[in-house]
Amino acid sequence: MNSAIDYIENNLDGSVSVTEAAKEAFCSSFHFQRMFFAIIGVTPAEYIRRRRLTLAASELAVGNTKVIDVAMKYGYDSPNAFTRAFRNVHGISPREARNSGVKLSAYDRIFFRVEIRGGNEMDYKIIEKPAFEIIGKCKHFTNENFFKEAPAFWKKYVTTEEYQALWSLTNGKWGQVAEAPLMSVYVPDEVGSRDSFKDILGVEKPAKTKAGKFKVLKVPAATYAEFNCSYHTAVKMHKYIYGEWFPSTNYERDESKPDIAAYFPVAFLPTRGMGVRWWIPVINK
Rank of each mutant, 00 (worst) to 15 (best):
M1Y: 08
N2S: 03
I5T: 03
D6M: 08
D13R: 10
G14A: 13
S15P: 08
V18W: 02
A22Y: 05
E24L: 09
A25H: 04
F26P: 07
C27S: 09
S29G: 13
H31G: 00
M35V: 09
M35T: 14
F37R: 14
A38P: 07
G41P: 05
A45S: 14
R49P: 03
R50M: 10
R51Y: 00
R51S: 07
R51I: 05
L55S: 07
S58K: 14
E59G: 08
L60A: 00
V67R: 03
D69H: 08
D69V: 07
V70T: 05
Y76Q: 09
P79A: 14
N80Q: 15
F82D: 02
F86R: 09
V89L: 15
S93W: 04
P94I: 06
R95I: 14
S100P: 01
K103L: 10
S105P: 01
Y107C: 00
D108Q: 14
R109P: 06
I110A: 02
F111Q: 15
R113Y: 10
R113Q: 13
E115D: 14
I116Y: 11
G118V: 12
M122N: 12
K125M: 04
I126H: 03
E128P: 07
A131G: 11
I134D: 01
I135H: 05
K137S: 08
K137D: 07
C138A: 15
C138W: 09
F141H: 06
T142K: 01
N143G: 14
F147Q: 05
A150Y: 00
A152M: 10
W154Q: 04
K155S: 13
T159C: 03
E161Q: 15
Y163N: 08
W167I: 08
L169E: 10
T170V: 14
K173C: 11
G175Q: 12
V177S: 06
V177E: 12
V177K: 13
A178Q: 07
E179C: 13
E179K: 14
P181Q: 04
L182D: 03
M183G: 01
M183L: 13
V187G: 05
P188G: 02
P188H: 05
V191H: 12
G192V: 02
G192P: 04
F197T: 02
F197V: 03
F197P: 00
D199N: 15
I200V: 11
I200Y: 00
L201D: 07
E204T: 02
K205H: 02
K205F: 06
T209D: 02
T209L: 13
K213I: 10
L217D: 11
V219D: 08
V219C: 05
A221E: 15
A221P: 09
A221I: 06
A225S: 10
A225Y: 02
F227S: 09
Y231A: 13
Y231H: 14
H232T: 11
H232G: 07
H232S: 14
T233Y: 12
A234G: 02
A234N: 10
V235C: 05
G243H: 06
G243N: 01
G243L: 01
G243K: 04
P247E: 11
S248P: 03
T249F: 11
T249A: 07
Y251T: 09
E255F: 05
S256A: 15
K257T: 11
P258S: 07
A261W: 02
A262F: 05
Y263W: 10
P265Y: 06
F268T: 13
R272C: 06
M274R: 10
V276P: 06
W278Y: 11
W279T: 01
W279R: 15
I280V: 15
I280Q: 09
I280F: 09
P281D: 08
P281Y: 03
K285R: 15
